[in-house]
């Protein structure tokens, strides 16, 4: 496996960082989609979106179909944000201190 120090090839590093970012983005999108599907099923089996619309404080009228779709998009969005945060926090910050400690 070809390895090289991180400072040796700047272009390569830049590409690699981009790849890692896109990979994390892809994972966050995909996993949040899967979980949102399950969440929607469990949530809407218990709560009727039409009824939720009736008791909600907003005055826009939302039908069942729209309710399901909106719910799914909300779940997906929030899960995606969670996933993205995990990805960002998991990556070690690129400071000198972090580099020294991470590999000891």
């Amino acid at each position: 496996m070809p390895t090289q120090p991180i400072t040796a090839n700047k272009d390569f590093n830049e590409r690699q960082i981009k790849r890692i970012f896109y990979r994390r983005l892809g994972i966050a999108i995909w996993v949040s989609f899967l979980v949102a599907a399950v969440q929607s099923v469990v949530f809407f089996a218990q709560f009727d979106p039409a009824y939720l619309n009736e008791i909600a404080s907003i005055t826009i009228s939302i039908g069942r179909w729209q309710g399901y779709a909106l719910g799914f998009v909300f779940f997906w969005g929030f899960n995606f944000i969670t996933g993205l945060f995990c990805g960002v926090i998991m990556a070690m910050p690129r400071t000198k201190l972090a580099q020294r400690t991470a590999h000891k």
Partner: peptide, 15 residues
């Protein structure tokens, strides 16, 4: 991967 080196090493992650 590298326990003793302080210099981080970039591995090619994907083929």
């Amino acid at each position: 991967m590298s326990t003793n080196e302080t210099k981080p090493v970039e591995l090619k992650l994907y083929k």
